[in-house]
């Protein structure tokens, strides 16, 4: 296993356990740290708990045991002001979740104006700057329904950035996109990584995880099975489970049929 602790972790999970109301175990003792400016990709089969893990980190799921620390401060347990934590931990969803009743600029300004109580002129300037940065400078007045999936997801990402988060959680943000739009979104994420944004990325885009992540966590059945550098994980996975998982992403033609009739 690669390093489990790092020098200046911004996020520390220790034996985090989560259970759904129906009794299904979401997380079965997950521990790892994320260093400042580190990009961690979480991969694994559907239902392995990777999305649950992200939701626990920003309090959309309640954990049943263990602890989560953000910048040294425990953010689990009773009395946590999640509305304050969530301003520091941005989350981008698979289905974008732009607010359809607001135009693009309105989506970007809602959090800064209503939550952070920022000045409108200042927030607007920042919003326009971010739109420019993701190539959507001319779409500030557009309604979400007028945008393509890739454009919506780029807006969703910078809507998070408007809150100046210390950590960004990306939950399968390209899973609903048409293939030709995946690239434009991943380019934005790669840019953020280059700028030193700390990110926890749940993804099925293996080549992207490989290119942008500093570390890959492989999860199965609510546990972290393997932690490794992308190089190592994708070239020489240490566990059978990871090998099986990675094999699913390779298509070598139809399975061989044994005993063809002669």
């Amino acid at each position: 296993m690669a390093q489990l602790t790092s020098d200046n972790p911004i996020l520390q999970l220790e034996d985090v356990r989560q259970r759904y109301p129906n009794g299904h175990v979401g997380l079965d003792g997950v521990s790892f740290d994320v260093a400042t400016s580190e990009v961690v990709a979480i991969v694994g089969p559907s239902g392995c708990g990777k999305s649950t893990l992200l939701r626990c980190v920003n309090g959309l799921e309640t954990i049943a045991g263990g602890s989560i620390r953000l910048d040294g401060q425990v953010i689990t347990g009773p009395g946590v002001r999640w509305e304050l934590i969530r301003q520091r931990v941005g989350m981008v969803f698979q289905e974008y979740e732009l607010f359809p009743h607001l135009d693009v600029l309105g989506n970007l300004l809602l959090g800064p104006l209503k939550v952070a109580k920022e000045e409108r002129t200042e927030a607007t300037a920042r919003a326009l700057g971010l739109l420019e940065r993701v190539g959507l400078a001319d779409r500030a007045d557009a309604w979400p329904r007028q945008l393509s999936g890739g454009q919506k997801q780029r807006v969703a990402i910078i809507r998070c950035l408007m809150m100046r988060p210390e950590l960004l959680l990306l939950d399968e943000i390209t899973a609903s996109l048409d293939p030709e739009m995946v690239r434009e979104v991943l380019d934005v994420v790669a840019g953020l990584a280059a700028d030193g944004m700390t990110m926890l990325i749940v993804t099925h885009e293996m080549s992207f995880a490989r290119a942008v992540a500093d570390r890959v966590l492989f999860m199965d059945a609510g546990r972290v099975i393997e932690t490794a550098s992308p190089e190592r994980f994708f070239n020489q996975p240490a566990t059978d489970r990871a090998r099986q998982f990675l094999a699913m992403f390779r298509f070598d033609g139809p399975p061989q049929r044994g005993g063809a009739p002669s």
Binding site: G90, E97, V115
Partner: peptide, 16 residues
């Protein structure tokens, strides 16, 4: 419901 959660994730209190 995800709209609501999306707002929460930006730091809105439930009532906001």
């Amino acid at each position: 419901p995800l709209q609501f959660r999306s707002a929460l994730s930006l730091g809105f209190k439930p009532i906001a």
